[in-house]
């Protein structure tokens, strides 16, 4: 493998573009210059820190530290799911439902890929485990948050129809099925669309990254296909788990609709 190393001067030169943007903002009185510079500074600091963390993780190759890093990523993603919900479940369910589903789905899919397709030595090697989890997690997070958002919205919208069926003696699981279908469709759409347009409209970041790193494009494409399959599996598993548990939570033991459980 051969790749061109970057030094600080290279980055400083590219950073001039951001300064030019800030200058443009001043000149055109957009009022964006401050936010733009702060965002650029944040990005540099955050990425440098991540780089340091990854470097330390790769040196350690410790199951404990790798696991902790993975849990921290899942915890942040769980927070993001919560932030994207208009209607949240009350109590622990608010955070636990999305995070738990993600832990299960992204964890299983990542471990599946590490132990059967990639097989690094050891199987939890952070150089493979962390990037893989990151990619699966990002998409599973989107799927779960879309699924939950659509589910709670649909059940609130369909309240009268759902209660009409309950009143006639229909089981809760059947009455909520249309809302669940809508939620699962919404969760699956982004990955279905992404798979359909990848390679035509967009060149995926991981693949282009590998090509820049000197990997044979044919190999990079194989990696990308693997990732897309893993993402669709993780998204489906996570969304089905979250939507099913969420739908259950909206009904009680007597199979009554309990919208009061949405905070």
């Amino acid at each position: 493998m051969s790749y061109i190393q970057l030094d600080m001067i290279d980055l400083a030169l590219a950073g001039l573009l951001v300064l030019a943007n800030a200058g443009l903002s001043l000149w055109l009185q957009l009022g964006l210059e401050r936010r733009m510079l702060i965002a650029a500074a944040r990005m540099v600091v955050q990425l440098s820190l991540v780089g340091m963390v990854l470097k330390a993780l790769f040196l350690a190759v410790s199951p404990l530290w790798t696991g902790l890093a993975a849990l921290a990523m899942i915890a942040f993603a769980g927070h993001e799911i919560l932030a994207r919900q208009d209607r949240r479940f009350g109590g622990w369910w608010a955070y636990g439902l999305g995070t738990g589903s993600m832990l299960l789905a992204a964890g299983l899919v990542t471990i599946f890929a590490l132990t059967t397709q990639l097989r690094p030595d050891p199987w939890y090697h952070p150089q493979y485990a962390i990037p893989l989890l990151g990619m699966v997690l990002g998409n599973t997070m989107t799927g779960i948050s879309l699924g939950l958002q659509t589910l709670t919205g649909a059940v609130v919208d369909q309240r009268v129809a759902i209660e009409a069926r309950l009143a006639l003696g229909v089981a809760a699981g059947e009455a909520v099925l249309p809302a669940m279908r809508k939620a699962l469709k919404a969760a699956a759409m982004p990955i279905v669309n992404a798979m359909g347009t990848t390679g035509l409209v967009s060149l995926p970041g991981m693949m282009t990254g590998q090509i820049l790193g000197g990997v044979d494009p044919a190999q990079a494409v194989k990696y990308q296909i693997l990732i897309m399959f893993l993402i669709s599996g993780g998204t489906a598993a996570g969304a089905v788990t979250a939507v099913t548990l969420g739908a259950r939570r909206l009904f009680d033991q007597r199979q009554r609709l309990r919208l009061d459980r949405l905070g």
């Binding site: 209660e163 309950l166 009143a167 003696g169 089981a171 199979q255």
Partner: peptide, 13 residues
Amino acid sequence: SGPAWRCQVTYMA
């Protein structure tokens, strides 16, 4: 069960 009860005792809104 909830549904079995509501089959017998049916509410119309």
